[in-house]
Design a binder for these strands. Sequence first.
DNA 1: CTGTTAGCGCATTCAT
DNA 2: ATGAATGCGCTAACAG
Lengths: 342, 342
Amino acid sequence: MNQKESPVTIEDVAKRAGVSRATAGRVIGNYGKTSMAVKEKVMNAVKELNYSPNAMARSLRSKKTNTIAIVVDRISNHFFVKVIEAIEKEAFDKSYSVIICNTHEDVRNEITQLKSLRSRRVDAIILAPAYTKDQKIREKNIDAYESDIPIVFIDYEPDEIKADSITSDNYGGGYKATEYLIGLGHRNIGVLTTDKFFTEKERVSGYLDALKNNNIEFQSTWLIQADAHEFGQSSHAVKELLMLNNDITAVLVVNNGLCAGTIIGIQEFGKKIPEDISLIVWDDSEITELMNITTIAQFPEFIGKVAVHRAIELVNDKSKAEEEVKKNLSIELRVRKSCKKI
Amino acid sequence: MNQKESPVTIEDVAKRAGVSRATAGRVIGNYGKTSMAVKEKVMNAVKELNYSPNAMARSLRSKKTNTIAIVVDRISNHFFVKVIEAIEKEAFDKSYSVIICNTHEDVRNEITQLKSLRSRRVDAIILAPAYTKDQKIREKNIDAYESDIPIVFIDYEPDEIKADSITSDNYGGGYKATEYLIGLGHRNIGVLTTDKFFTEKERVSGYLDALKNNNIEFQSTWLIQADAHEFGQSSHAVKELLMLNNDITAVLVVNNGLCAGTIIGIQEFGKKIPEDISLIVWDDSEITELMNITTIAQFPEFIGKVAVHRAIELVNDKSKAEEEVKKNLSIELRVRKSCKKI
DNA sequence: CTGTTAGCGCATTCAT
DNA sequence: ATGAATGCGCTAACAG
């Protein structure tokens, strides 16, 4: 007891139970056939010795890990947390374990993690890629993405390589939100973005097209970039937006991390929501519910579920990889009270 | 390429490089001594074959995993997320990997996960236990907690077994918050709790003692229990509290998951913060900052760091386990604008 | 500095 | 239904 490496192996169990290693293995691993009598003896020995099967030896031999990995930018993003919990649930139902990895928005870290996951021989990887301006890093390490283990992307559609991706209809969401604001009479609409994610580019693109199709000329000062991890940054950014454009009556926030800071910034600027400024932000959260903020809502639970489904499909049948799957899930405008008709 | 199990082993690499398996192993695993010439040949072979070392085989042989696990109730709790990120950071610095496990507040799940982690031979486990009214389940599975692998508890001090624990001074925090409210003139102070965690009991206990020491008689209707995962539940709970006690002027919320619902409930009841009701909640968050709510702030980064430090200490020196470590980290009253003097 | 050999703990033939 | 023997991919111990 209390040895560093639990020295008790299946051989010890077998000896104690008075059977062969193979037989002990059968009852412990629950395969093959064994008599009740033997089963009992072995189970007793397991209990008495407090035996714990060595998962490494097991999967080294069986060549199965029954594990899928989910790697995300940040588990502090509540959207991803919901995706992860959905993945865990779905994976559990299909008796897969899941490994959660956090890249902290660092591509090098992402690559390291991917390599480690490959070494650990996970069966599949669900990946929400970290952002990088320097796409070359990815290309240089493309083997991290193009190994023999299937990758399902979420929140990102890769150009570099052929791969599956599950995304929300970000373009459509941006378009829908903007059109809604225009319908309420707004014409000068600002946008806040971290400019750090593939998804945000799509959202902004929808916003731009909605403006264009409604004959509103986009002003470059309407789009402000801010960092998502400090309130100061994002509140400062909105204030800048309002300062630069005193005719702005609505703001669209395309990254959930900017939400709180934006609200604070608008307040600090002396404006009220929705009286002075109408606001739509991406993703539902405690805050949007609490503050009654209209949102563009994605369905993280569904994304997680679909991703796992596809991942397992690929695990079970390699040939399925031929038909590349790109799913673009629908998105919903959830109207609350942060937008005013003018 | 693109085979299910990458068939390329160290032997293939060795063959291709024209060296022995052992030598190939040395340069790949970066141990022992090798000449530059050989090093280069091997690395080339690795690249050409897109070789990925088998982590299972490796740690089966070396008997090291260099992995520590953190298991929490829910990664949707932002407090734990901060703890986890601190753990990852600290572990990374000491070149440990970390495995994140999510028990979904289910003890059976927790036990399953612990067994799995033992099988995977992680070096140490940091555990924020799931709550259970039925302590017997734990006792019945005590071997999950008393294996040969060291466990450091966070947010919990185990009775059942001898083990290390890192907690915040929850009792002190409850006391401090209550005393602060009393100092502002409040005498009728309600408490909201999920009644699901060890920590909350401590916090409430501090609250009760502060009342007693200030000659305020606790009324049983002041304490209301609510579920943390639905706004409806917690907002309903506050409303009940206010309904039952129309003389209440302050509310202490001892679980961060109740925060948003509480605010909504108070609003829906037609009361204003802080004019009618003073509010203190546990843990800082985006919401408390946004709404300017006074909090009892823990230091999750510190908790994570200390936990990893202790875990690694135990890994390196089993004898350290003799002196049981119980750390009770200080806690801070962070005054904002949700409490009024009366 | 490099090669040979053995064996980590287990699942899987193939016998019986 | 059970046992004996083999080898998964790798690192460690020992030679040379």
